[in-house]
Amino acid sequence: MPGVSIKIVGYARGFFDSPSYSFILSEGMTIRGLFLELSGHAGPDFDRAIYDIKTDRMNEHIAVFVNSKEIRALKGLDTRLHDGDVVTILPPMAGG
């Protein structure tokens, strides 16, 4: 089905009411627009943990991929989404 799929990984799931979502793509939708959609599914820590709507800033420690590209290598919050895209959100991680 056309649209955008969202996959929330690991600890970041705790900020949302579901580990995955699908949205019908609206015209010109960007990561910023997607975050605004997602905020409706998120708990009170969303602004701090993912994206602060008031300041238009993403948490510098999370990684957000559109398919296999991290959005900092694209156009950040202005990255345009397309039908069939998969957006993956990773929380801060390190170890090994």
Binding site: V9, G10, L90, P91, M93, G95, G96
Partner: peptide, 10 residues
Amino acid sequence: TPNILLGVNA
């Protein structure tokens, strides 16, 4: 250290 496991799996 397994905090990364689901990220690596993704």
